[in-house]
Amino acid sequence: MLNLIQMDLYRMFHSVSTWVILIFAAAAAVFTVSMANIDVSAMAEDPQYAQESVQEKNEDSSSEELQLGIYAESDPEWVSGNIDAGEMLSIQIKSGVLTLLCIIFAAVFGSADFKNGYIKNIAGQLKNRGVLAVSKFTASAVQVFLMMLLFTIFTFLTGEIFWGERFVLGAVTEMLPFLGAQYLLNLGFAALILLLCTLTKSSAFGMTAGILIVMRFSIPVYSLINRGIAEIRPSWNFDINKYMLDGNMGLAGINASPEILTRAAVVGAAFVAVCIALAALAVKKQDVR
């Protein structure tokens, strides 16, 4: 197992896609903070726009409606007050922009050995080739960590450049529970994509499915499930969003309650465990083509 992890880490650090995606993670941080800066400037110049944003923010927090696509909304209070670095990072990560990159990486990295046939060189010589799924996930976990680290650093650097003293870093320890929960959710996504790629032998399928989930195209499906369960057990008050990766990703922000953060972490970890176990089983049982 350790040998395979070493192999996958070596492959990861010698793959162009790894570095391209890390560059994209940094660029995404710069881009999203720049967009927030444009938004803040627009609100400063147009008080009516700021007013509308306040209303939208209040409606969003009370409404149960969910939006499709990727959104990172700026806080109207940032116009005049300090901009909290943790809050800024939380909004950007909750938007799913970083998760999209995690999904693309997991799909490309996870299916490369199937695609070019390298797996044929090693799969037969392993006592349990299911560990191939575990080693690929481990390498992906390292990459997701690096992506989050880079995204965080570049968010803070760009914020510092745009807003200077108004951009307040605050206590890093306060960010750790939120970052930890989001890391596990992103790992859950990586594991899910690895599973889909393993089952379908198609990086395109895994990538597309992952992107659609992050963009909340899963909402109609969840809705149907919620309604179905509500009809069977009306007293249950079941909401599948609470148990899915995308649902928790949007909730587990820096200001989320410990209960929400804990649930998000558990959901992320559960997805990792189940998806990797299934992927390992699939790799073990399937013939290598």
Partner: peptide
């Protein structure tokens, strides 16, 4: 057992 099955699997 070393193998080369069909075309070489290489990156």
């Amino acid at each position: 057992v070393g193998t080369l099955i069909e075309s070489p699997g290489i990156y």
